[in-house]
Design a protein around this nucleic acid. Structure first.
Lengths: 169, 169
DNA sequence: ATAGCAAATGTTATAATATAACGTAACATA
DNA sequence: TATGTTACGTTATATTATAACATTTGCTAT
């Protein structure tokens, strides 16, 4: 039995990947056009690969994909694209995994908090106001000026817990 | 002028390093004795070096220190000690820096949240109940079981901001 | 004390992640 | 189309971390 009792940002197993990837790429194209920055073929493809995987993916995994596609790529190729995508807020880096994941709200001001499921490998991006304000509040109290935040919570998502229960009877 | 208006976990510039290191090592010794695990010479020395630096320190920095001291050390030497110290809660790993820092509350159950100053390089360990409960609350709402949390906020601490202001007049 | 075992460390090699430096190609625009 | 800038290709190397196996150390039971 599949539980729907929890609202979650984890994509359901049966959602339409293709539409979801296409939509992300559309948004990215609009955003880059609006900003006057160039979402080149390579950058576009890298972003597409990241979204297609639908979970945090390593730089060298991407490199391998490109190589399989006949693109003669070396590490700098991929890291430069990743830098561009990071700088333009189109992807996030998951520090605890050394991996990269598509940003769900490119162009919008948002906190990037991640719940990462070790079972399915998926990362849900949140913008929880209470987490955000608790952090900002603490920073204010100690007079700390925030530049970057890394909020990554690892564990097991509701779907995967259900599946584990199902398997065990 | 030095500001004291902010309560903070950042050690003041004039605090007594030596006492602070000694105290951390004492605690570590008691803790290991109580747990029946062995804080060997090597592990003790690694922990001492981490505390002495008083900011997050990289594995290869530690390695270099040991080498300078005449210890013929290779990477596994240091990583094994780091693993031991991590597993026993005597240090934390700062994912956003690939670096290790002494734990301020070994043996106690606590959230490990870090505010990391890019200017002085120091990392303040917090246990802010509101941050913690905001995260736990969100996890509950989405049915997520938490295993590990990485909460790292980078920026500039109050002391360093004061100093920057002083320099600029 | 010492034989035997487990834990810790030494040693060599290599994996995984990331960047430096410099040359070439593509693109924008005057 | 000349010109400058941005992106990309290419080679080399830096940085962080682990695998695999040999040796030593220290604990425990006799």
């Amino acid at each position: 039995m599949k539980s729907n009792k929890h609202p979650t940002n984890f994509p359901s197993a049966d959602h339409d990947h293709r539409r979801c990837v296409a939509s992300a790429l559309d948004k990215a194209e609009s955003y880059c056009a609006a900003q006057g920055v160039r979402l080149t073929k390579l950058r576009h493809r890298v972003l597409e690969l990241i979204w297609a995987s639908h979970r945090p993916v390593g730089a060298y995994d991407l490199l391998q994909q490109l190589t399989l596609e006949g693109h003669k790529a070396a590490p700098p190729t991929i890291y430069r694209s990743l830098d561009f995508l990071l700088n333009n807020g189109l992807i996030h880096r998951i520090n605890s995994l050394n991996a990269y994941v598509g940003c769900e709200h490119p162009g919008l001001d948002h906190a990037a908090q991640f719940f990462i499921c070790g079972a399915c490998g998926q990362a849900a991006e949140l913008d929880d106001a209470r987490i955000e304000s608790a952090i900002i509040g603490h920073a204010k109290r100690i007079g700390f000026t925030i530049e970057r935040k890394t909020i990554e919570v690892s564990g097991t998502c509701a779907n995967c817990q259900d599946q584990q229960r199902d398997r065990q009877g």
